[in-house]
Simulated scan of single mutants.
Amino acid sequence: MLLNYLRLLLLPFSLIYGMAIILRKKLYDWGIMRSVKFDLPVICVGNLAVGGSGKTPTTEYLLRLLKNYKVAILSRGYGRKTKGFILADATATAERIGDEPLQYYQKFAEVTVAVCEDRVEGINQLKENHEVIILDDAFQHRAVQAGFNILLFEFRKLGTLQFLLPAGNLRDVFSARKRADVLLVTKSPVPLLHVAQQASINELQPNKNQPVLHSYLKYGQLQHLQQNDTRSLDSVKGYTFFLITGIANPAPLIEELGKYTKDIKHEEFPDHHAFTTDDIKRFKKAFEAENRKEKIIITTEKDSQRLRATRFEDLLVNLPIYYLPIEVELFEEDKITFDELILNYVKSYRRNR
């Protein structure tokens, strides 16, 4: 209730923010502010809200789809303590390039991973040696005119009343969706009923040639943070789960873990939280105070990048701490449409024919 009152107090500031967003949009539309177009495929993955819509697994889906091309992924590197253009290499850490870029670098050896807050500069550094560039979280970065925009919407938030920042979590006006080439609804339920699918389309009101497609999350095997060890969720059914997260929206993960236990002790931090030694010590103490033998620590793959920091190695040694990987998958007909749209777009450039 208190939060709702605070949001009401912030609504005037959201109105000012919205007016600024619309003015900026018009300046780009009128050509007063310059938007650069590049002579190679540039695919942008973005959303209208702040975090939590599944950009990272969607980007990884694209990397797998485009495995036959020389791909570079360019991110701002949110949460890093550095500035400027940096190429990920063997010395990369979450503090140097950000947790999401580090995850891409560690999972996709054949992909170039770079960070730069100035996307135009970043693309200029990468364009000569690559066939495709993927922009991670750059829909609002109008300085680059991406050739193909994928805009994500979380299924469970469609149809709910959402406000612009700072009263809500929207960083762009809803009408901005009209710029996208594909509207991708993420974290859909399985199975997806036709009535729910149609409700998404009705809510988004797409343009005539703007497909609304649906994807869902697919969870993998639990993987140990420090050791070469994997476990299925079935193998820890009924355990006490100590869950530690620093992501925007842990609700879908909690829902999935709830299928395997009723005892989840969740330590929740803000998105991209820079874990401290005190955070880890407090969490470890709570875990060790639990008398049950059947207990396990679970985190997300993105959080695992920050938890692997050298300063935490001794604190976490010998603990059963695992991360749960996720992948995005599209429903059969939507997958065919989506893959075809992406591959045809990439092939349309002379250098990739």
Score class of each variant (00 low, 15 high):
A309R: 11
P252G: 09
Q198G: 01
R7M: 14
I123K: 03
I123G: 01
L233W: 03
R80S: 10
S14W: 04
G122C: 06
L213C: 08
A49Y: 03
K81H: 12
Q227H: 12
S348H: 06
I73W: 00
K107N: 14
K157D: 10
E154S: 11
K25H: 13
S188A: 15
I134F: 02
D181L: 05
A143M: 11
M33D: 00
H214N: 12
A199E: 06
M33Y: 00
T93F: 01
H130F: 08
D29K: 05
I264W: 03
Q205T: 13
A146M: 02
R311F: 11
R231P: 00
F13G: 01
P191S: 04
E95A: 11
D279R: 12
E290T: 13
G51S: 02
D229A: 07
A274V: 10
I22N: 01
K208M: 09
L217A: 09
R231K: 15
I21H: 06
F287N: 02
D89K: 11
T186G: 04
H272N: 08
Q103K: 12
I280R: 05
K293L: 14
L307N: 05
F242E: 03
R353M: 11
A146T: 04
Q145L: 07
A180H: 01
A114R: 02
R306F: 08
T337D: 05
A176G: 03
A72K: 07
Q140F: 01
D136I: 09
D172P: 09
L10I: 10
D181S: 12
K293W: 07
E268N: 10
L11N: 05
L343N: 00
R119W: 06
P206E: 07
R311D: 13
A286F: 02
T93E: 01
K284C: 10
E256C: 11
R231M: 14
P325Q: 06
T91L: 07
R350Y: 10
E128C: 04
D303G: 07
L222S: 03
K127D: 02
D263F: 08
V113M: 07
Y17K: 02
N4K: 15
I73H: 00
K25C: 04
S188T: 15
L164C: 08
F139P: 05
K83S: 15
V71T: 04
Q140W: 01
E332I: 09
Y323L: 04
P191D: 03
F163G: 03
